[in-house]
Amino acid sequence: MGLIHLELFATLDLVGQAPGGPEEDPADFRFGGWQAPLIDEAVGAQIQAAYEGTDALLLGRRTYDIFAAYWPHQKGGPDNEIATLFNSIPKYVASRGKPDLPWDGSTQLGPDLADAVRELRERHENIKVVGSLDLVQSLLRERLFDRIDLWLHPIVLGVGKKVFEDGAVPTNVQLLEPPVASSKGAVYLRYGLADGVPATGDMSAPDRGLGSAD
């Protein structure tokens, strides 16, 4: 069975809206493009490495439109491996409407998102979800993901759509490799879906060493 990888960029208060530019989601959000000043070589290298082995993209409608307006016009090759990858692999779009899909290799998913994603897992080994916050919320609710690649950036916005909105199913994840920090303070965290649900406990229990000193 193939794996679903969520590629997410967030601020410290977990805002994930419009990281790449003001045009991504201009409605009532004045911080579009907040990620751009925080990109450096370490971030770029890790983002590129995260796409190794990807054989399909799964995108929400808004993210697809942004990508379709940009990537087909970029020349691929050794200096732009992401363009080569994106333009060559299948693209699947989650949308309730009837979107125009001009990018070669694009297909709209069926109306039952969960069934459609499960079917994709039978056809592909590594499916990457980039941005697409509304789609991500649906995948989180259905536990239809296997890995979260999360970039946390050293800013707080106070407004905007969150990476983890209300309604996410309580879920355990495990850190798959040591965090990577960039020179500008962004931290890359790679998590895998784990069994069970979050446990609870009592920090004042005697074996915790945090009880009263009396």
Rank of each mutant, 00 (worst) to 15 (best):
M1G: 08
L3M: 12
L6G: 11
L8G: 10
L8R: 06
F9V: 05
F9L: 12
D13F: 00
L14P: 05
L14Q: 11
Q17H: 03
G20C: 11
P22I: 02
E23P: 08
E24S: 13
P26Y: 07
A27T: 06
L38N: 04
D40I: 04
E41D: 11
V43F: 12
Q48T: 09
A49H: 15
A50C: 06
Y51H: 06
Y51L: 07
G53W: 00
T54N: 03
L59V: 06
G60N: 10
R61K: 10
T63P: 00
T63E: 01
T63H: 02
T63W: 03
Y64L: 09
D65L: 08
D79I: 11
N80T: 04
A83R: 09
A83Q: 09
T84S: 01
F86T: 01
K91W: 02
V93A: 06
K98W: 13
K98H: 13
P99G: 05
P102H: 10
T107S: 07
Q108F: 00
L109K: 14
L109H: 15
D115K: 14
V117W: 13
E122R: 14
R123N: 09
E125K: 13
E125Y: 13
E125N: 11
V129T: 05
V129M: 10
G131P: 06
S132N: 06
S138D: 09
R143M: 09
F145T: 00
D146S: 07
L152W: 07
H153D: 09
H153R: 10
I155G: 05
V156H: 12
G158L: 11
G160S: 08
K161N: 10
F164S: 07
F164N: 04
E165F: 10
D166R: 15
D166V: 14
G167L: 09
V169K: 14
P170W: 12
T171E: 08
Q174K: 15
L176F: 07
L176T: 02
A181P: 09
A181R: 15
S183Y: 03
S183V: 05
Y191R: 02
L193K: 06
A205P: 02
P206C: 09
R208V: 11
S212W: 15
A213W: 15
